[in-house]
């Protein structure tokens, strides 16, 4: 039997995420059409992927005409954090939650929804999680649709400033993390230095952008994992 009450509790918990996703994906939609994707394709990417950084990197890889292997590699590295989050989420669900419910919940395991799921004081039910997920998906997909439509209609200068929206969101995620401690600061600086090298050093700047993100991420995170190992914890 479907527990509507639990589902609506999930929707309620997901509303702030929905609003946040809407504005960010508006930026994604307008950026995607600016880079030559059709409105339909932009919406399709958001509806099937539901991930911010992965989609933006994927967009870059697709429009640059890179190989499928590069597309997969980029997604694997950028979204690798979800695997860790999925393990933690699986434990929060507990043994009773079966295979079919898990493969539905997996689709909605984003950074923000994971945070909502893990912070729930009552036992976390898949119904609650999917409720929060569905409303967030609506925000993400409709924001993309509106952004894509507006992006193809708005004047060029407004479109250019909208593309910064996404970077603004990344800044908002990175800055509070970096403030937490030295290790994260070093991690950020390493990624920054590598990224600049690949952008400005002749020869290195010939490497395609998707691959550059992968190399910078792996290098910075691996160096920090060796220098500053994190004590064992659940997520």
């Amino acid at each position: 039997m479907f527990n509507f009450k639990e589902f609506f509790k999930g929707i309620k918990a997901g509303l702030p995420v929905c609003a946040g996703y809407f504005s960010v994906s508006f930026g994604f939609g307008s950026m995607a059409v600016a880079q030559g994707l059709s409105i339909l394709h932009s919406i399709l990417i958001s509806a099937t992927n539901l991930t911010s950084a992965g989609q933006f990197a994927g967009l870059t890889v697709i429009v640059s005409g890179a190989t499928v292997l590069e597309l997969i590699l980029t997604q694997l590295i950028i979204n690798s954090r979800y695997s860790l989050m999925s393990v933690a989420l699986g434990q929060k669900f507990g043994q009773k939650v079966g295979f079919w419910k898990r493969i539905i919940c997996a689709f909605f395991n984003t950074d923000e929804l994971f945070a909502i799921g893990m912070s729930r004081k009552e036992p976390l039910s898949p119904t609650f999680f999917v409720g929060a997920g569905v409303i967030s998906w609506v925000g993400w997909t409709s924001g993309t649709a509106l952004g894509a439509i507006a992006g193809s209609a708005l004047p060029l200068d407004i479109r250019a400033s909208l593309s910064v929206m996404l970077y603004g969101m990344f800044i908002a995620i990175v800055v509070p993390e970096v403030k937490k401690g030295k290790a994260m600061l070093v991690n950020m600086l390493l990624a920054l230095i590598f990224s600049c090298l690949f952008a400005w050093v002749p020869g290195l700047n010939q490497i395609s952008s998707g691959l550059v993100i992968v190399i910078c991420t792996v290098a910075a995170a691996a160096i920090c994992a060796i220098l500053f190992p994190v004590k064992q914890e659940v997520a």
């Binding site: 970077y167 990624a191 691996a222 500053f228």
Partner: peptide
């Protein structure tokens, strides 16, 4: 575990800079 802990910030930083400088006119 440590590697995955550091991935998001490293990845978002690499995606943002220097790309943000060239995203505008």
């Amino acid at each position: 575990n440590s590697f995955l802990h550091y991935v998001p910030v490293a990845c978002l930083t690499a995606m943002t800079f220097p790309a943000i400088l060239y995203a505008t006119d």
